[in-house]
Amino acid sequence: MNSETKHSRLEPELMPRRDVLGMASLWAAGSAFMFALFGIARLPKAAVLASPSKKFRVTLPETLPASGAFVPPGRNVSISRDSEGVHAVSLVCTHLGCIVNTSSDGFECPCHGSRFDRNGAVTRGPAPQPLPWLKVTGSGNEVVVDEGATVPSGTKV
């Protein structure tokens, strides 16, 4: 057999027969590490989100004008009342999450200049979505707004 003389320690045979077991254990170790990686990757994604309650109760002021909006202190929600009922529009810009300001004809975002009309529809700027309408329950001046639940635009109670 001259095949043995062809190979040296620097240029060994491609896969000697005896290395199969070695390769198998290498693969086993590799897959064990991959499995560990799943566990590592799973940890940072929280199962329970530590955020304050999104539902809040609010008493609307008696003198809320027909077309005016009421922003409860500490909440990023604009509540309006007209003859058809009460509705709440989120003030969190759909572009990059800044809080929009109310203006004479709707809302405008201080960060990147998106503008919205009174119903939250985008009129200019980079915002990809209209401002969502939030779920309102209750009646009269005592209402509960849920910032975590959206309703189709135009829903008033």
């Binding site: 500490g74 990023n76 990059l96 800044c98 809080i99 201080p110 960060c111 990147h112 980079p126 990809p128």
Partner: peptide, 26 residues
């Protein structure tokens, strides 16, 4: 203050080119 953004809210200077770009589309 989570209720009132800076106006204008500016990133550090080396990200302001990016901010100019995201003002077109995020």
């Amino acid at each position: 203050n989570p209720n009132i953004p800076e106006n204008p809210a500016k990133a550090p200077w080396y990200f302001l080119g990016l901010q100019e770009l995201v003002a077109f589309t995020a």
